[in-house]
Amino acid sequence: MAEGKVDPVHQFTIETLFGTDHWSIGGYNIAFTNSSLWMAITTVVLLVFVAGGAKRELVPGRWQMAVEGLTGFVDNLLQANIGKAGRKYLPYVFSLFGFILFANMLGLLPLALVGVHPFTATSHFTVTGVLAIMSFAIVLGVGFAKHGFHFFSLFVPHGTPVPMIPIIFPIELISFMVRPFSLGLRLFVAMMAGHVLLEVLSGFVISGTNAGVGTFFLAAVPSFVLMIGICALELLVAGIQAYVFALLTCVYLNDAENLH
């Protein structure tokens, strides 16, 4: 009897592929792992998607419509949060949104049915953290380049009474410095939680089915039904988390662009 022993976090294990363990630059290991592979797949799929829609036709086909819809969505996001000046961030925010969205979605594909294990790169805080730090670095760069040391006035909201400034300033500064962590961790936690939940439920289904008819109906069937719902929810979360990441990047960029 195949005991359904499911390790819910095994799916996040990084494995080196193609015997590239020894690859390194300056002493740092850069082995090509399953995580790297799925980032590559994300890149290729996104590349194919956008390339297929960049046909520049006056009357768009379905594919072009889809790509233009996604572009227009990010463009509107920038317009709404930053205004006219938001256009110049479109390449970065679109890349961010597209990369996260496609990575999330690809990680949810039921490819295990054909023996391939999808890996969600965005369920690793190493990855989301780098993306968050990148966004934060751009915000800092833009802020200081545009406003110089006046950028620190961001930490003193309008109308703050002078005696309150010594208290408000550190609070605002801390809330500002926490941004990259909250940005990166939010995506990582949402992705990981969803995948762990699906794994745990599938573990219930397997164990329940193996343990007999009673537990099949009591535990396995309800878990399976719940899994279907949560799969739909996870698709939603995949989109929402990509949106939230892009949206918060826009909001932070707005702070840097316009202060407040």
Partner: peptide, 29 residues
């Protein structure tokens, strides 16, 4: 794994940013 993760993310996100964001997106827009 952190160095490998960071390195490959930068490689692939770089490709996405420069090829898609900088290369294709302006045409779409």
């Amino acid at each position: 794994t952190y160095s490998s993760q960071v390195f490959w993310l930068l490689v692939f996100f770089g490709i996405v940013f420069f090829v898609i964001g900088r290369g294709m997106l302006p045409k779409v827009v």
